[in-house]
Design a protein around this nucleic acid. Structure first.
Lengths: 374, 374
DNA sequence: TGATTATGTGAAACCGCTTACGTCGCCGTG
DNA sequence: CACGGCGACGTAAGCGGTTTCACATAATCA
């Protein structure tokens, strides 16, 4: 025995948990009097091991308090059982819930979630994905359809499966699960059109690096243009998605008359802000104006004026995403159900276009100027 | 070329990225005409490699699009650079923000976050921690001080560093970062006492497997008992932490008079619910009653009656936790700043005890019965 | 009963990267 | 001019599991 630190064959056949070296599969094997292969088998394919040995190994394993080393297994298996997800942020309840559901579903299938936030920055996202890939994730979950081409390239080159979430796009069909933002907003707009509204305001989320926001806006535009309508520039405002921002943007919209009779918000918090600002100013909802949002959060139905909005089951998105990647990893065809239902939650903040939507315009012009127009 | 799938020695000294085998460090080494050790060194200790080789390796690496295999590195290094965190849920904005901050801070230090939710279930938490440990996380972040002894035992036995968050307890001093729930609530209660309130209601979060909630309640009790006061049983209610629950619990409190003059809510959403219910019933805040919460969320300051509450920088908690584990992993002494500041955000939902708090009691008894008492 | 086929185990070769050592070339001294 | 020292690299032994393949032994069949 020279001065070898740890090299050479592992002598010292200590048979109990010595504090020195952590216990490994080999220690278990030795204590159970079997080969390492057998120990490995009781772990992975117990049915191929005789009951006797199985128990001997289990006992030894328990006595030694052995915790299998995942990294070693991953190296040998070429699978980590980990899935990486990059969300823009978790401050948004929607993403938080989706993340939670994603994690839960993945876990129940034996996978672990690696989570990171890109803060709506595609370069950052790329770095994170790269980090995930280096860590050996089996699959990746992304939000939205807009990504750095390099990101997708990397994933493709290494053939790492991935899903894009929160913006189902029928054009691409594959690789994406979630609500169809455009179609959802299209439907909500049509709902307002059916109520007779013709003059619309839009409080949109900034579409910078946010294809979901862009798709929503497109949905509104499409629905309107089908009726030969469009949003007046001064009635289209955009910004971040806080309540305070919603208030400020709403103020901008009503800066001067004529006001829109319906204001569509691209996000729950923006809608909450708009409604709070409107009621604070004594604007009757839906008497004088209708305000609707996208996405449902609890506060929306608890406010003095409950807010009409689209309910997106964001936890469903998380589950679908988990489903998708797990199926793909198992070599199966992912469920065909990739699009996620949305539902209009009709509440008190919206209603028929005010009959008296004529008493507008700054210098009280002729009434009914463009009320029931078209 | 028989039909060998991948076995045998890797002959075929192909020098370009063949679709077959993924490129590995060896391929890079071969293309750069250096040993594997050198490639590894340019990656980990570039300063110990001559500029010439460094560049040759970099070039080869880039040309091959090599992505180092983290699992292999982890196995060799005995470090994964991953930190596991178990939160009760992410639906709670606080945890979501903390998770986000934790991830951001960890990432900037080169670590990756593994995330999971326990749903306030300690058994579940133990399983998750176990899973993390098997995955080889370098450290673990937990929420609260209450945990399955086995969980802590496992961590200790494998000497995996961990922090407990969101409930700084001066008794334990170590291993925990966050606000001191008890002390914070103690302070908030004293604030109300200073305003003259003597009859308190408490809408608490269920303390089941939630030591933070328990600590908060204790804070209220301590502050009151210091004044010889206590909460009447019928004024102490508890439940989950939704807005709707807040409303319902508030209703229970005001079921019969005398009402408390101040209601302390154990959570932001409960407070929002209480305030909405109170205003809906025409109860003047703070004219007739004061309502305060714990924890600040945006909606609280945007409601018609902005709510007084404690601001906890939950992102700070995340950062502190990251700090703690990273420092510990580096063998350094964690920052001494483990406790996280809280601040009373005084808003309109609280004020001096109503002078007329005498017009209470069901059968309109003698006024001032116990108003300024003591 | 001997040949054949399941079935259960063990020996040993990896998985892809890190790193302790050893080697080699070059420079500075005595 | 030979020798010790030093730095840059290469060699090869792991890290802790998995898995292929060979090999017994037991069960099955002619």
């Amino acid at each position: 025995m020279t001065k070898m630190p740890t090299p050479g064959a592992p002598p010292s056949p200590g048979h109990d948990g010595r504090p020195g070296r952590p216990v490994g599969l080999r220690d278990v094997a030795r204590m159970a009097g079997v080969s390492t292969a057998t120990v490995s088998r009781v772990l992975n394919t117990p049915e191929r091991v005789s009951a006797t040995l199985r128990e001997r190994v289990a006992a030894a394993s328990a006595r030694l308090g052995w915790v299998p080393d995942g990294t070693a297994r991953a190296l040998a298996t070429r699978r980590t059982g980990a899935v990486g997800a990059v969300f823009p942020t978790l401050s948004h309840g929607d993403f938080a819930r989706a993340a939670e559901a994603l994690q839960g579903e993945l876990r129940s299938r034996g996978y672990t979630l690696l989570l990171a936030c890109s803060h709506y920055d595609l370069a950052q996202e790329h770095l994170l994905v790269r980090q995930f890939v280096e860590r050996g994730v089996d699959a990746v979950v992304l939000v939205g359809n807009a990504h750095d081409p390099q990101t997708i390239g990397l994933l493709d080159r290494l053939s790492v499966p991935y899903v894009k979430t929160f913006n189902y796009d029928p054009e691409w069909r594959h690789h994406c699960v979630g609500p169809d933002n455009r179609r959802a907003m299209h439907g909500l707009t049509r709902y307002l059109l059916r109520l007779g509204h013709r003059r619309f305001g839009v409080i949109a989320q900034s579409a910078h690096n946010n294809d979901r926001a862009a798709a929503r806006l497109q949905g509104v535009r499409d629905a309107l243009s089908e009726m030969g309508l469009s949003v007046r520039p001064q009635h289209l405002v955009e910004g971040r998605w806080t309540i305070a921002e919603g208030r400020a943007l709403f103020r901008k919209i009503i800066e001067k008359k004529p006001w829109p009779t319906a204001v569509i918000c691209g996000n729950a918090y923006l809608a909450v802000g708009a409604v709070l600002e409107a009621t604070a100013r004594g604007i009757a909802l839906p008497g004088e104006m209708s305000i609707v949002g996208y996405d449902d959060v609890e506060i929306m139905q608890e406010l003095p004026v409950p807010i009409t909005t689209l309910r997106i089951r964001s936890d469903e998105v998380g589950r679908l995403a988990a489903d998708y990647v797990v199926a793909t990893l198992a070599g199966k065809q992912p469920s065909t159900e990739l699009e996620c239902e949305v539902e209009i939650m009709e509440r008190s903040s919206s209603g028929p276009v005010p009959r008296a939507s004529r008493r507008e315009s700054v210098p009280r012009r002729a009434k009914g100027a463009d009320a029931g127009r078209r």
